[in-house]
Nucleic acid binder design. Sequence first.
DNA 1: ATCCAACCTCGACCAAGGTGGAGGTCAAGA
DNA 2: TCTTGACCTCCACCTTGGTCGAGGTTGGAT
Lengths: 153, 153
Amino acid sequence: MTKLPENLTIGQVAERSGVPHTALRFYEDRGLIASHRTSGNQRRYPRSVLRRLAFIRTAQRVGLSLEDVHAALATLPDGRTPTKADWSRLSQSWQEELDARIDALHRLRDRLTSCIGCGCLSLRSCFLHNFDDAQSADGPGAPKLKAATEGGT
Amino acid sequence: MTKLPENLTIGQVAERSGVPHTALRFYEDRGLIASHRTSGNQRRYPRSVLRRLAFIRTAQRVGLSLEDVHAALATLPDGRTPTKADWSRLSQSWQEELDARIDALHRLRDRLTSCIGCGCLSLRSCFLHNFDDAQSADGPGAPKLKAATEGGT
DNA sequence: ATCCAACCTCGACCAAGGTGGAGGTCAAGA
DNA sequence: TCTTGACCTCCACCTTGGTCGAGGTTGGAT
């Protein structure tokens, strides 16, 4: 088990994180990660970049944009331990968004599931025929698709 | 309450669905929706396209690609009532994917939440410092980021 | 019959999130 | 010292999911 140096090369980071080196430079351009340079202009990363990368990739997997991630990471200090206030800021700004996404996913999944079980093939209660309320759940301000049901089932 | 004609123009569909007419043509190119044409080559849509659009937009909101949606819709018959087998196919192909996404979201949210409450600012248990297991949850075949913790907390 | 908003196609362009190659430099082992 | 793989920058290109405008046609109301 070789001891990891504090300064990782881009190749080491790529290998250990599973993130291609091209993407690492791309993230650096976008300000998501940072490196310092050797006298010969090569990038060197602190080990903590691996944590950042894990965070970035996880956030991406759940559908957040790099800009979202950037905004969140920007609220966290780079050089010091995050304070409770730092976390609170990051968490609260995402909580609502994450909850909404979880909700939307549940609704979509449950609809598919219940449709299988409901014997609704009569077209009367089948989800594709009553799908519109997925929209109206967005609030009273967006009932556009409600109109589509006027003609009846 | 004006009775909706069976054949909607692209403008009517755009207005009622909230989907821009440019996107409607785009979706048609991609095979997600279909229309027939008047003798003058203008598109006419059946009302059912509104349901399809609601489905498409909802699936997109939860992060599925248009290709995913296309694949799913392709399994549903256009002209006839979907059978239980039709639904079963669509549902089962998505169930796993949706569950995985819900899971990933839960993990991300719960991490943020617990971090706020846990007083972990010592860097010992804070999620950014133990984030790696979000990756190892992918299975035993992908422990890449585990290596990063060698240097120890 | 005429008018004009709404429609048509096609191709350029946009943003996000990258990949790949050309041409040149660095650094560590033989 | 020399070699060679890893690194550097810059730029062109890719896919997804669209938007926009030019230039031309339709169709419903007057």
